[in-house]
Nucleic acid binder design. Sequence first.
DNA 1: CAATCAGTCTAATGATCGTTAGAATGTTTG
DNA 2: CAAACATTCTAACGATCATTAGACTGATTG
Lengths: 223, 223
Amino acid sequence: MDNRTVKHLLYEQVARIGRAVSSPKRLELLELLAQSDKTVEELAGELSVDVKLTSAHLKALREARLVTVRRQGKYMVYRLSGEDVAALWVALREVAEEHLLELQLQLDRMARDPGALASVTRKALLKQARRGEIVMIDVRPEAEFETAHLPFARSMPLAELKRRLAELPKSRQIVAYCRGPFCMLAGEAVKILQGRGFRARKLADGISEWRAAGMRLESAATD
Amino acid sequence: MDNRTVKHLLYEQVARIGRAVSSPKRLELLELLAQSDKTVEELAGELSVDVKLTSAHLKALREARLVTVRRQGKYMVYRLSGEDVAALWVALREVAEEHLLELQLQLDRMARDPGALASVTRKALLKQARRGEIVMIDVRPEAEFETAHLPFARSMPLAELKRRLAELPKSRQIVAYCRGPFCMLAGEAVKILQGRGFRARKLADGISEWRAAGMRLESAATD
DNA sequence: CAATCAGTCTAATGATCGTTAGAATGTTTG
DNA sequence: CAAACATTCTAACGATCATTAGACTGATTG
C-alpha cells in the first residue's frame, strides 16, 4: 500500500466525522445529547421532525461513532460518545460565528434581545452567584439539569416558570441560561420575567460552552 | 420570524462549516494551507489532482469562509482565514482518532514504523532541543518552514536531505517532523537517515498540533 | 495588441444524501 | 402468546455533490 493510498484513507476517516456534522438536524441532535441522554422519541419531539427521520440521522451519527445507543426497556437511549464530541460542536459553532457574517448578524439580533449578558466573565459570574448577589436559574427540562448544570444554579424549567414565580426574588438580579447560544429557552424565560417586574438577564453559555472553557460543572449526584 | 425558523437558520450556518470539512480533499487542502499560503497550482500538485477540481474545492472552502484568496501577479494565493480554522482541523482529527477504530488501527501501524516518538512530552522535547541534546529537523518545503516552525528546528526539506547529510551529526539523536500525524515526509526522512547510520526518530506533531497545544512557534521573521 | 498562462465558470455525468411511506424487528404488557 | 409499541430497515423519490471537459476571464509577456 503506497503513501498516497494510506493518506487518502486517513483523510477519508476524518471526513466521515465532517460528513456527520454537515447537517443542521444532526448538529441539533448533538447539542441536545450534550445536555443529557435522550430517547429517539424525545429527540424527534425537540426537533419537531418525524421519528423515522430522526432515527436515520441518529444512524449516521452512530456510524461516525459520535453517539452510542443502549436499550432501556422498549426505548433506545442515545448518548454522546464523549466530551470531545460536545467540544467539537462548540469548536464548529465558534468557527462559524467567527467567520460567517450571516451568522454574526443573526446572533447580534438575538443579543440585542431583552437582557443579554455579554460582558461579564464566567469567573465573575460564578463569584456573584456564590455570594448570592444573583440568582442563577437553569430553564432546561429537569432531566438535563440533573445530568449536569452550572454551579449554584437552581432548576426552573421554562414549562414550570409561570407557576413557580413565587420562588424567585424581585430584589436580586436573575440570570437564566439554557442549552447554549442557539437555544431559545433562556430568552423566553427572560421575556416572561421582565414582563412580571423581575430583573432578569440571560447568559449565552450552556453546559458545553462552560465545560469547553475549562470550568467545573455540577450534577445531581454531586449536589 | 418564529423561534424554530431562527433556530433552523443558525444550525444551517454551522452546517455550512461542517459541509466544507466533509470531504477528504478539502481537509487535505486545509492542512496544507495551515503550513503556509499556497497557489492553486501548488495545492493541486500536492494533492495530485486536476487544477480544475482543486479550484472547485477551494471555492467550497471560500464559500464557508475558511480560506481567503488574493491575486499575486497571475497566481491566486490561498490562505487560511484564521488560526481557529487550523485548530478546527486538529479538533476534527482528534475526534476521529479517538472514536474511529479503523483510523486508530491505521495510525498504530504508522506508529510502529521506524522510530516514532510517542511518549516524550512536548516540553521535554523542547528542553532537549534547547540544550542541543537532539537536533530537530523540519523536512517540509522551505516556504512552509519560513512561515512558521517549531523552536530550535532547522530547515532540511526532504527533497534536499540526501544531498545535505553532511550537515547532520551522527553522534546526536535527530528528530524529524513535518505537517502533522497524517504527513509522510518525516517518516520518509527517518527511513533514509536510519539507512545511513543516523539515530533518527519522528515526531507526529506539526505546526497546527503544536499551536493547538498552546506552544510557541517561530517564523522566519522572528529568527 | 495578440498570444500565453493561471484560474474560474458552465454544463453534464453518475454517485450520494435527505426525506417519506411501508414492512419488519424486538420488547413489553395484558 | 397475542396485541401494542418504539424503533429500525427497505425501497423509492428528488435534490445535491464530485468530477470531468470545454468555454471564458483577467493578468502578463512578447
